[in-house]
Design a binder for these strands. Sequence first.
DNA 1: ATTAGATTTCAGAAAAATCTGAAAATAGAA
DNA 2: TTCTATTTTCAGATTTTTCTGAAATCTAAT
Lengths: 206, 206
Amino acid sequence: MARKTKAQSSPAVKAQLIEAQDRFIASWGRMGSVWGISRTMAEVHALLYITGKPMCTDEIMDRLSVSRGNVSMSVRSLLEWAVIEKVRLPGDRKEYFQAEQDVWSMLRAIARERIKREVDPLLDALDEIGELAPQIGSHSPEDVIELQHRLDDVREGFGLITTLAHKFAGPRGAGLHTAAKLLAKAPVGRSTKHTSKRSTRKGTGR
Amino acid sequence: MARKTKAQSSPAVKAQLIEAQDRFIASWGRMGSVWGISRTMAEVHALLYITGKPMCTDEIMDRLSVSRGNVSMSVRSLLEWAVIEKVRLPGDRKEYFQAEQDVWSMLRAIARERIKREVDPLLDALDEIGELAPQIGSHSPEDVIELQHRLDDVREGFGLITTLAHKFAGPRGAGLHTAAKLLAKAPVGRSTKHTSKRSTRKGTGR
DNA sequence: ATTAGATTTCAGAAAAATCTGAAAATAGAA
DNA sequence: TTCTATTTTCAGATTTTTCTGAAATCTAAT
């Protein structure tokens, strides 16, 4: 094997690397539960993202200590979310998986999927309820008018959110990054909080 | 009690009203689980929002068929989220609760709380991991450089999101509605999808 | 200070979500 | 097609979350 100019990691550095990856995986996994996806699904995604290399089912099982079935199901969901993709290495029968490496496109995928699961069903239900409820007529009691108004208010609020989501996070959307930049520039409010505590990136500029 | 000019609901209309409310409560409750809050907590909020009237613990228990303890705990969380408030009726020893009636301020509260629970802990963890991981030096192996880059990318992405959240959804923020309007106007992308299927609001204009 | 109505707490029960593992199905190589 | 490495499925086990209900605590009126 031709020894390229690549620096070799000392065992100590390698251990630290693994440790850092594991911590990232654990944090992302914890988030997973908050986001309503299973811990394992989030962990598999974290593993593939943070290592950046394509991995097969067995590697994932070993690294995360989870069952084959669990990996299979998690991987399927991640593929549906379109945050990882299948890779086939020639001369190898196994399937490998690789994570989307661009953070913004990853965030977009997450946003898209969440809107789909969280907002769309609510809007559908609201439409249905609005039809089912007593309609407003010339002599409607206050109750009925208020109900319809409240339903409409919620519908309008979430409707606007969905429109924006499609516009910026949809498959053909302008991109979350664009939206974020637009908003960041917008001349409103006073707070300019949360500057990242540290930035590790040094001379290595991209 | 002086019979004002208020129209009286027929029993049939009243039943439809209750039915519509119940459906709304059920939908909102279902969302609750997706949002990582308990079904009951979401249902209590939905009940208070959709009826608009202050209710006491016993009324909530009866209407939702849940235990006293459950109502107590749900109400406490909702107060923390600041989406409902306590009301005291003079000459009544019980506490009543009433929901925020403005949808945008409600959405802001939800966004604020979610960022706090979902993004902030992740950012903290990322900072910690970045420090713990091997630092980039002049002879760092590729592995280490990539790890730090990926950590920074995630940190930047979520950092921007947090900044925006503070700006628009924070306690002194410019308001989600403002943000939404800004974005809706923004001259990007092609899709103008999702026009609400129907709008129930008729001549009754606010 | 007493009392009774109202609220909170929390241990254990119930329900829901997640995970395992082995059997069944699938798919590439020969 | 046959063979076999690989993947998927899903019933039951495990873990986590949520809920109940009654005892403990609180609170405001007398």
